[in-house]
Amino acid sequence: MRFVLFMALILLAGCTSHEAEPAPTPSASSTSALPEAEGPAGNLASAGKDADWDTFVLPCEDKTKEPTIQQVVTADITGDGIADALVVRACDNSTVEVFDGSSPARRPWRIDQPLLSSPTAELRRPWVTGLEVASREIIIKANGHAIDDHGTCRKDRLTFAFTLVGTDFTQLRLENDPAGKCLPAG
């Protein structure tokens, strides 16, 4: 009996598989870096604020200027339970572009037209100073011009409110608080 146990141990000890490879250790050269807007899950919601947004927002009308990202807020705007990205982009004025959080991070889907890009909003030449989402309502605070003001400085504190209806944004309200003096732009 001892002989059988002894032979079994010898056989087991000699039966190591040569096919099994040790687990590779990660190194800088063996890992592939994800693009800046790509998150581990591959969707936009996973990239969130860390995405390289200046490659996805619309270009400035003045082709000599590059868009500047002022702020990024993530919140569920579409109601699908996935965080969407609201990106404040500035050239001479600010706009807010909303990207669907379930879209691929390498090619995010813009929802409707940028907020603050309507002819009425553009007349005010808004410069966003704050952005928040409350119960799927987008609230944008901005310094802007009065509609009839063609001056060089923004003197109105504006609050815009938008909501998504279907696939289009609807402006709910615009509040104006004239400051009577020049307000900062940037």
Rank of each mutant, 00 (worst) to 15 (best):
L131Y: 04
I140C: 09
L123S: 13
E137H: 06
E19W: 12
N176Y: 06
T159N: 07
T68Q: 07
A51M: 05
L164C: 07
T74Q: 10
V4L: 15
A23L: 15
P108D: 11
R125W: 09
V73Q: 02
R136C: 02
V96D: 00
I10S: 07
V98S: 01
S32M: 12
E19A: 14
A179Q: 11
K155T: 14
E97W: 01
G42V: 06
S30V: 13
K65D: 14
T68G: 07
D52L: 15
G144F: 08
G42R: 05
A33H: 11
M7S: 12
L9C: 13
D168K: 11
T64H: 08
H18F: 14
D149C: 12
E38I: 14
L123Y: 10
V165N: 02
C15I: 09
K155R: 15
E61V: 13
G101Y: 03
T129N: 09
S135L: 09
W127C: 06
S30T: 13
T16L: 06
A83Y: 09
T78P: 03
A33V: 15
C60D: 04
E38H: 09
T64V: 07
L115V: 04
L116F: 03
P40R: 11
R89W: 02
C15Q: 12
R107N: 15
E137C: 01
A75Q: 04
R89P: 00
S117K: 06
L86S: 01
A41F: 10
T120C: 01
L172S: 07
D148V: 08
I82A: 13
D112R: 00
S29E: 10
A20I: 14
L86T: 08
A23M: 13
E132T: 13
A41H: 08
F160L: 02
H145W: 04
A142T: 00
T78Q: 04
A23R: 13
A90N: 08
C182T: 00
T74C: 07
A75E: 06
G48F: 05
F162Q: 05
D177N: 15
A37D: 15
V96K: 01
L86R: 06
D156Q: 14
A142Y: 02
I69D: 01
T120I: 09
A8T: 09
C15D: 12
I69Y: 04
S17W: 10
E19N: 13
I77Q: 00
G48T: 11
D149K: 05
P178F: 01
I138E: 00
R154S: 09
T159M: 11
D168Q: 09
T68Y: 03
A51W: 03
D149R: 08
G79N: 01
D149L: 09
V165D: 07
K49P: 12
S94T: 07
P184G: 00
I82R: 13
G39F: 03
F56E: 00
I69E: 01
R2S: 07
A105F: 02
S27C: 10
N93D: 15
D100F: 03
A105I: 11
V87C: 04
R2F: 08
L158C: 10
R154G: 03
A142G: 06
T16Q: 08
T170Q: 08
C153K: 06
